[in-house]
Write a protein that binds this DNA or RNA. Structure first.
Length: 553
RNA sequence: GCCUCUGUGGCUUAACGGAUAGAGCAUCGGUCUUCGGAACCGAGGGUGGAGGUUCGAUUCCUCCCAGAGGCACCA
């Protein structure tokens, strides 16, 4: 459909790549072009030529010049009907494409730190990263997810020192206890900064392979990973790999040598640094010989390039690390690793308090698990109070509450543009109506329910004789945008474009639903088809966002 | 001090340089002899400030104001 219009437009305007897009306001038609304004050619002349195009005449009911010179295309009812048939025929594949065929993208996301609780701060990376993963997969890319666990570095020196100091045995260690030790250290170190030397010495020992240190470290990793996996299960997130920073120990010497050989390393105050033209220098080796996360992130690129040769590596990591990634990417370029390869840092904003950052060091964080269980319990209360939960068993209600509650939290995060900060507020987080996951889930479930209730399961309709009202036409023009929205959301690394779209589609459907009968209404077959297609798009869209749709709710 | 990001109705927010700045929450007023009311319809109210580029700026540029983050031995 779009290519027919595009082709006609190319001929009529004489422009190689005329712009053709979906107008924001559906009153302006199904497609719109600004080619007249951009090229300076009179819109009237272009439209005259367009009207002579036979292929175009078959699908378009009206071509109009509007506003400052937009050319708007209104599809005929028959064409809209045919589009709906296409959407239905594609079924679950509507929206997917082969755009990324043969290309690989690595996504680095979630990446929590070992020995710290999984805080709400990690929600963004985890949820946005997973959505990007699904988006790229839908576009036919080979996608590799890697959970770059923070399981190495001086922070472990801190813990090792604290554990030795306190005389705690491994069996006494829990994540809460570890976090306590961590907070306690920072408190003490503020008064006595020399403590850091002890911590660094411990990390140095660990890096040199000291067996006692390694033993304790392994334990810390195990305790944490077990805990993380529980959270991931709750969230319904599965990440392909979790190499973690420690994995790259063996690659360190190679990275350091490569940089030295290229003459990119400079000694400074006992440490080795890499300097850049327009960035502050980055530290490669500390004065005590231990490595830094700069070194480790370079090693990580080396490994990923060697293993997967990806076209794109996406880092879904907080914005506070922007400078670090700029340095890492700059160094990778100097090493020649970024040729024909895109290194992208999606720096998401913080989930923070009104006054500023949450800080593990200060111990003022919010546990993700607490948020998820609160959301689930609030969803549960609504089920009890509302009509919609009737006839569900207790177990079903529990499952629905989980899908709805956790879906709401994820959606809340995803519906914000990644770059903005989110102010943490218990009340705003738990939105279960309006622009929210439950609204979309509800709409999808309701669509299914109608289909089940219809005695007539026949979805065939004759698009040639189709008469559409405004509400129906809007739903269809919503449905046909889905594939482009997925592309835009992936390209811009903005899952919020998909949440916006899905919400708009659900609104259009609900609007239609409230004004027209489906079962036993006019055009019943057509309306059932419309209902089916909407439900499917909503479900697959939610699926891409990592949000599950219950059977009933 | 330097660098990065952000600033849109009371609150939370959306918008490849385009049309009347689009929603949700809250407020007020409506819809129901319901195919699922976690719904639908309507109302009020908004681009931090000053310039500039452009046929056209929330979007790009400059300056200012406000907030957040970062600036070598944490990650």
């Amino acid at each position: 459909m779009k290519d027919v219009i595009l082709k006609a437009l190319r001929i009529a305007s004489g422009e190689q790549t005329p712009n053709l897009e979906f107008p924001e306001n559906e009153d302006f038609g199904d497609f719109t072009s600004n080619v007249a304004m951009v090229s300076g050619k009179p819109a009237k002349d272009i439209v005259e030529k367009l009207k002579k195009d036979k292929d175009l005449a078959e699908i378009v009911a009206k071509i109009e010049i509007a506003g400052p010179g937009f050319i708007n295309f209104y599809l005929s009812e028959e064409a809209l009907g045919a589009e709906l048939e296409k959407v239905l025929k594609a079924g679950k594949n509507h929206g997917s494409s082969s755009l990324g065929e043969g290309k690989t993208v690595v996504i680095d996301y979630s990446s929590p730190n070992i020995a710290k609780r999984f805080g709400i701060g990690h929600l963004r990376s985890t949820v946005i990263g997973q959505a990007l993963y699904n988006l790229y997969q839908t576009l036919g890319f080979k996608v590799i997810g890697d959970n770059h666990l923070g399981d190495w570095g001086t922070q472990f020196g801190v813990l090792l020192a604290q554990i030795e100091d306190s005389g705690l045995k491994t069996q006494d260690l829990t994540l809460d206890k570890l976090e306590e030790l961590y907070v306690d250290f920072h408190k003490k170190a503020e008064a006595d900064p020399k403590l850091w030397d002890g911590a660094r010495a411990w990390f140095k020992k660990l890096e040199e392979g000291d067996s006692a240190a390694k033993e304790i470290w392994k334990n810390l990793v195990e305790i944490s990973v077990t805990e993380f996996n529980r959270i991931y299960k709750l969230l319904g997130v599965k990440i392909d790999y979790a190499y973690g920073e420690s994995f790259y120990e063996d690659y360190m010497p190679k990275v350091i040598n490569l940089l030295r050989e290229k003459g990119l390393v400079k000694k400074s105050q006992g440490a080795e640094i890499v300097e850049f033209k327009d960035l502050p220098p980055a530290m490669l080796v500390k004065s005590d010989g231990a490595t830094t996360y700069f070194t480790r992130d370079l090693a990580t690129i080396l490994f990923r390039v060697g293993s997967w040769d990806p076209e794109i590596i996406i880092y879904e990591v907080g914005m506070e690390q922007t400078l670090h990634f700029r340095q890492v990417f700059a160094a990778a370029k100097l090493l020649g690793w970024a040729k024909d390869r895109e290194l992208v840092h999606i720096g998401h904003g913080l989930i923070r308090f009104e006054h500023g950052k949450m800080s593990t060091r200060r111990g003022d964080t919010v546990k993700l698990e607490d948020v998820l269980s609160e959301a689930t319990s609030r969803a549960g209360k609504i089920i009890e109070a509302s009509e919609t939960g009737r006839g569900l068993s207790d177990k079903e209600k529990e499952e629905v509450a989980e899908a709805v509650g956790i879906g709401a939290i994820k959606y809340f995060d995803l519906s914000h543009h990644p770059a903005t900060d989110i102010i943490f507020d218990w009340e705003k987080l738990f939105l279960l109506e309006g622009n929210s996951a439950p609204y979309l889930q509800y709409t999808a479930v309701r669509a299914d329910s109608v289909l089940k209730k219809a005695k007539n399961a026949d979805l065939d309709f004759n698009s040639k004789e189709l008469k559409l009202n405004k509400e129906e036409a809007r739903v269809i023009s919503g449905l046909i945008r889905f594939p482009e929205v997925i592309i835009a959301a992936a390209k811009n690394y903005s899952p919020n474009l998909l949440t916006n779209y899905l919400f708009g589609l659900a609104q259009k459907f609900n609007n239609f639903y409230n004004q027209h009968r489906i079962i036993d209404g006019e055009n019943e077959n057509f309306r059932l088809a419309l209902t089916k297609a909407t439900g499917e798009v909503l479900k697959s869209g939610l699926g891409i966002l990592g949000i599950e749709t219950p059977e009933r709710m």
